[in-house]
């Protein structure tokens, strides 16, 4: 700053200026000390462990990370394993449906609750409550409900509706939808609250202006309100997306990957190979693939979002 503002003195100042290293280290020292723990965490946990993970994914480590370098062997094996391939397909299918339905249902619920209804806070609490439960609880509850012999199907059959059938959880072709039901039950309330905050952020006069302009309500939502909620939508997508990628506990509690391998997901694959399968190299290769997938999606997006300077409105 001083260099451009006072060019005449710049030369004189350079002579007295301490070395670059010294300046970087000691300028605003207290702030740097305060940031040190977080910087250490980032370096050791995030960067360090990521490098460690990637490195050992190229070894034939079994129970302990001690194996020797074997190149891409673990990755070759990974993509020849049907369990992994099913896991990835499941995650993509579940993730896409879950993201779309959570956003759509969450938005519709938010719109409904935004109509100046009575007991709004009560509804909001009820809708948000599932989010306060862990996925393990959600999974168990829905496992009981959807259990063909003990749950909804069994109950209705006992009541006399003998041909009632709801066995998605035991049906390899439908088990993904069973997961979706539990996932939506868990996540839509949270999405609704986010969306509601976004809707409340829209100036009431914009609504009035749209009414005077004769724009139908649905059109106002689609063309004016949703574009105004861009920030909220991005927040929701990031939170939901990270929840989908690390999906693990819901599957463990709800189906444990079954029937067969029909509801396996990548995070479960990683965990099983690392901690119960005794094959660290394979687990880490899978973990690296997950990281790579996330990066492939995130990097172009982050570039678009934050790259172009001054383009954002």
């Amino acid at each position: 700053m001083a260099d451009t503002a006072v060019p005449l003195e710049a030369g004189a100042e350079t002579a007295h200026r301490p070395g670059l290293l010294k300046r970087i280290l000691f300028h605003n020292l207290p702030a740097k000390i305060a940031a040190l723990p977080m910087m250490a965490t980032v370096l050791v946990v995030f960067v360090g462990c990521t490098i460690w993970t990637v490195y050992y994914s190229f070894t034939n480590s079994k129970l302990l990370p001690t194996g020797k370098f074997v190149g891409f062997d673990q990755y070759e094996r990974l993509f020849q394993t049907s369990r992994w391939n099913v896991s990835v397909t499941n995650l993509v299918a579940y993730g896409a449906m879950s993201l779309v339905f959570t956003l759509v249902i969450g938005f519709i619920l938010a719109v409904l609750i935004d109509q100046k209804i009575r007991f709004e806070s009560a509804f909001r609490t009820i809708m948000l409550y599932p989010f306060a439960l862990s996925f393990i609880v959600t999974g168990l509850v829905w496992q009981w409900i959807m259990n063909p012999t003990l749950g909804l199907q069994g109950t209705l059959r006992n009541l006399g509706w003998s041909n009632f059938s709801f066995d998605w959880i035991a049906n390899p072709r439908m088990v993904l939808f069973a997961m979706l039901i539990a996932g939506l039950w868990h996540g839509t309330g949270f999405c609704m609250v986010l969306m509601l905050a976004g809707l409340r952020g829209v100036d009431e006069e914009v609504w009035k202006a749209a009414r005077v302009d004769g724009i139908p309500t649905w059109r106002t939502y689609v063309s004016i309100v949703i574009p105004m909620m861009r920030g909220v939508l991005i927040t929701a997508i990031v939170i939901l997306g990270s929840g989908i990628v690390r999906l693990y506990d819901l599957v463990v509690a709800l189906t444990n990957g079954g029937p067969g391998i029909s509801s396996e997901v990548p995070a479960k694959y990683v965990f099983n190979y690392m901690f119960s399968g005794g094959n660290i190299g394979q687990g880490l290769a899978a973990a690296t693939m997950m990281l790579l997938t996330v990066l492939i999606i995130m990097v172009p997006w982050a570039y678009l979002e934050f790259g172009g300077k001054g383009k954002r409105t």
């Binding site: 009035k208 202006a209 005077v212 004016i224």
Partner: peptide, 16 residues
């Protein structure tokens, strides 16, 4: 349908 135009305090333009 009333044949009116209205201008608001907060402008109420459509920001996007």
């Amino acid at each position: 349908d009333r044949g009116i135009g209205m201008v608001f305090q907060s402008y109420a333009l459509y920001p996007q």
